[in-house]
Each structure stands twice: as C-alpha cells, then as structure tokens.
Design a protein around this nucleic acid. Structure first.
Length: 505
DNA sequence: GTTTGCGGGCGGA
DNA sequence: TCCGCCCGCAAAC
C-alpha cells in the first residue's frame, strides 16, 4: 500500500476513515478497493469489491460464526477462538496444535470430544475475548458495488487453521485414506501382488513426500498464504499420516503453517495492561505478502514471512508517516471508549494483536475473561516475561543499530509493541532471513517492510513480544527471541527448513 | 455431516 | 435499546 494512501482521496483506507458499518449511508465505493484480508485483526475496516469472491462469502481465516444482530442488512460474525491441546504439547516439528473450531455448534461439541492426535490429551476450546471480554466481531455489509467490512476487537488467541487450509488438509487426508483403503483392499484381494514395501499402505513421510498427488491438493494456489495449506508443504498430511485417522479427523494444523507461523505466544508486559491499547504486535501471521506472490513460497520464505508476520498488515494499514508512538503511547481506555476521532484513527490500525498467553508452563494458558470494564486481555506477569525481556537484549541484536536505538527507547517508552514486529527485529538480526529474503519471491516487499521498520519503527516492540522461556527447545522461533543461543537455534531451524526444502522438495 | 445465513427469543447492561 | 448468546430452521455444499 502506498505510503501516501492517506492523502489519496481514492484510497480505500481514506474512505474507510469516514464510515461505520452502522452508518445509515455508506460512503461511495472507492475506485480502488482493498485487497481481501484473510486475517483481519483489530479495529479495522475494509472496503472490498462486491466482485471479491472471498468477501462475498464473508470468509475469514478466523473461525467466525454467524451472530444474530437482528439487522438483515449487516451480517455479524463473532470469533470462536481456537482449539488447542490442553497440555500444549509440542508437535514433532515443535509447533503446537491449533485447530479451527467447527463453526457448527454441534460439530464443535463433537470436535471438543476428540483428543489431541499428538498426545491424546483433551482438546480445549480457547474462546476469543478480544473485544472487551467478548469475542471479536466482524461485520459485513453489502452496499452497491462494495462490500464493507468492519472488525471490532483484537484476537487474543492463536490463529486457528485457516478454512482453506483445513479444507485442503481434509482433502489431502481424504486422498491419503482412499489409496490406503484401496491398497488394503487390494492387498486383501491380491495378497500375492504388490510386494513392494513402499506400497504397503503404511503412511510415512517418504512415501507421502514422494506422492505427487499430495502436492496438488490445494485448489487455489494463488491463495496459498501463511496459515494456509501450501502445495509445497504437504506436511500436514505427513504429520497426519502417523496419527490415528479416526482420532485425527484432519484437525491438525499444518506443520508448515507452524514453520512459517511459529506463533509466538508471549506474556504481555505489565505496561500493556495499563495501557490497554492495542497491545503488541500481531502474531498474525500472514502478511498480505502472499497475495503478491505468484509462486510457491519455500520454507525459508515462510520462515521469513513469519518473522515479518507481525503487523505487516498493520503496515499496510498505516501510513508510513504515522507517528505511532506518540499516537498510542497514551492510550488508556479500551478502544471502544475512544472518541470518534480516535476511533477514526485507530480503526485503521490493523490489529496488532497481542499475542495470546501461551505459556506451556501453565496449565491455564489463557486467563479468565477480563472483567467487565477491564481490558479485554490481561497481562500475564510471569518470570518468563522478565526472562524474555532480558533476552531481548540479546547480543545478536547488536547487529542492528536501529534495534539498539529501540532498546534504549524502550526504557523511555513502555508502550507495548503496536506496530513493529518484534519478529522483524529478530529478522533484522538474522542474516539468514536476509538471505532468505533475497531469494524470496516476495523479497522486495519484505525489504520494503524492513526498510520501513528501520525508518519508522518506534520503540515499541519488544517486551510483549518476548518469547516465553522455554526449556524444551521445542519452538525455536520462540527461543529465537529469547536470547542469542536461541537465535542460533532459530537459525538452525531455518537451516533445517532450507535443507528440508531443498532436499525434500 | 457441515457450513452458512436467517431470525426468534432470552437475559444482562 | 443494545448486545451477546442460544436455539432452530433451511439451503447449500
């Protein structure tokens, strides 16, 4: 999005600054519509073309269910949250289970009765409380040639599997099980045939990887974005393979989503509690970068995207000249309490969703819903927070003068990261990611982001983005933000991805 | 079987 | 009155 979007009278964003979904009269449709946002987060508004298929279907990466608002002209949906393993077990790839809650109540209940396919523990539905303690709500309104979208609230939970990803995986699973059954049947019928051990019907990574069919499970590769199944990453199938299919039911988030999207669930620093503004950066994944990529991203790209995942959307929603720090450091009340003008300003702020409290050390990773009137999200002050904060001052960051500046700034401004992805900092300190970027089809965009960060980054980023202290090393990305050693670990992961990508694919 | 949209109805603020 | 939420229904996939 051009930096001068705010000055462009035709800019959808500028247009968006002057309307509310409940307005009797919506603004005239802009000449240029917003590109579809699969993961809207925060108090944002977009104007899509009525020809936009995804907008027509009111799609969202988040698991949104229809909510009756008794207004036939405005479709309202509320977020269901995400389904996690109660033990927060680490998947083989170090990621965590993040299932997409079934939209249908009945299906969701059924889903919750299942167990974690990884550790057999119970599954837990983490409700969304990102809107003053209530689920984040999305509103859709068709008006003329435009589809107006407005989101209220900042998701306080990890991203679930995207719908497209879920569908793709299920489709892939179906493809897997079909040949499997056929194979079994065939073997039953013709036991003397097919002695090839590779065709024994056993699921294994090798066989799956070698199955080109699995690479064609995505119906629409152009929409292959983070959090979504990607043809180059059939891992979801790979992962699913060894699981009990009856239990699995195709609900595991693709490890490749994890790789590119190692959601970093971090405790919020104390300051964020009081500020109650848009908290920290959006773990949110998936920058709109994928939209610009016509080719399949490799693992390293995913990793890089992930590193930049925080707030790329925010960047796209902000004017580059936006003085974020001065604008937001003083936020006190909940967003809903802001005056109209303020609303107008921040409603464009793509969510900077704060990271959910995903502390594997705690049985209750998510806090109780905030009390009425209180911030939607509570700060979790744990030792991990402190450790993470210290970790942020990791020597690795000395590679970046900007980061150093931010470090010093942090001491003067405790405002939680709003716009600057800590991940970006991490990436800045990670040569590998730079290399990766260079080789990425979206490299240009990423560089732009990075440059923007260097110029505009405000001292916000870190505290809340600090990764929780982990000792199991299961999530290198988390560790990455926690210290130098972690960075090495992170690089290792990246390297692993590289080799994985090159060798396996 | 699940998703999606719609709408009635209830309770709380 | 607004909002969140539950429920049931029907159409579509």
């Amino acid at each position: 999005m051009p930096a001068d979007a705010a000055q462009d009278p035709e800019s959808p964003r500028r247009m968006a600054l002057s309307w509310d979904i409940n307005d009797p009269q919506m603004p005239q449709a802009p000449a240029h519509f917003d590109s579809f946002q699969e993961w809207p987060d925060g108090y944002v508004r977009f104007i899509y073309s009525s020809a936009e298929k995804k907008a027509q279907r009111h799609l969202s990466g988040w698991a949104m269910r229809n909510t009756n608002n008794h207004n036939g002209h405005i479709l309202k949906k509320s977020c269901l949250g995400v389904v996690l393993c109660t033990r927060a077990c680490a998947l083989p790839d170090g990621s965590r289970l993040q299932l997409r809650p079934a939209i249908c109540d009945k299906a969701r209940l059924k889903q919750q009765k299942k167990v974690c396919p990884n550790c057999q523990s119970a599954l837990e539905l983490i409700p969304c409380r990102g809107h003053s303690g209530y689920p984040v709500t999305n509103f859709w309104r068709l008006d003329g040639s435009a589809i107006y979208f407005q989101a209220k609230g900042v998701h306080d939970h990890p991203r679930p599997e995207s719908k497209s990803e879920t569908e793709a995986r299920r489709s892939a699973l179906k493809r897997q099980t079909a040949p499997f059954c056929q194979s079994q049947k065939k073997r039953a019928r013709e036991p003397e045939v097919g002695e090839n051990p590779d065709s024994s019907g056993q699921f294994n990574n090798t066989s799956l990887l070698g199955n080109p069919e699995l690479f064609n499970i995505i119906p629409d590769t152009s929409f292959c974005g983070p959090g979504q199944a990607c043809p180059s990453f059939p891992n979801s199938d790979i992962y699913a393979a060894p699981c009990d299919l009856a239990t699995f039911q195709g609900d595991i988030t693709s490890p490749f989503q994890k790789y590119p999207n190692p959601k970093i669930y971090l405790p919020r620093p104390p300051c964020s509690y009081d500020l109650a503004g848009p908290r920290y950066t959006n773990p949110s994944p998936f920058p709109a970068l994928y939209k610009e990529s016509t080719s399949i991203l490799n693992d390293a790209d995913w990793l890089r995207l992930n590193a930049l995942q925080y707030n790329l959307n925010s960047y796209s929603s902000y004017e580059s000249s936006f003085d974020f720090t001065s604008k937001h450091c003083g936020w006190k009340p909940g967003l809903e309490n802001l005056g109209l003008e303020e609303k107008t300003d921040h409603r464009q702020l793509q969510a900077v969703a704060r990271c959910p409290y995903y502390n594997p050390e705690l049985s209750c990773r998510y806090q109780e819903p905030p009390s009425a009137g209180g911030p939607a999200l509570q700060t979790v002050i744990t030792t991990t927070t402190r450790v993470s904060y210290q970790a942020y001052q990791c020597p690795t960051l000395k590679h970046s003068a900007n980061v150093q500046e931010e470090l010093s700034s942090l001491s003067s401004c405790s405002y939680p990261s709003e716009n600057t992805p800590v991940s970006t900092c991490a990436e800045a300190a990670d040569p590998l990611s730079v290399i990766t970027r260079a080789a990425s089809p979206t490299g240009r965009t990423s560089l732009k982001i990075l440059e923007d960060c260097a110029v505009n980054r405000t001292p916000m980023a870190f505290p809340q983005e600090a990764a929780p202290c982990r000792t199991d090393g299961a999530d290198p990305c988390n560790v990455c933000l926690s210290g130098l050693g972690s960075v090495i670990s992170f690089s290792d992961r990246a390297g692993l991805l590289f080799s994985y990508d090159s060798e396996e694919f």
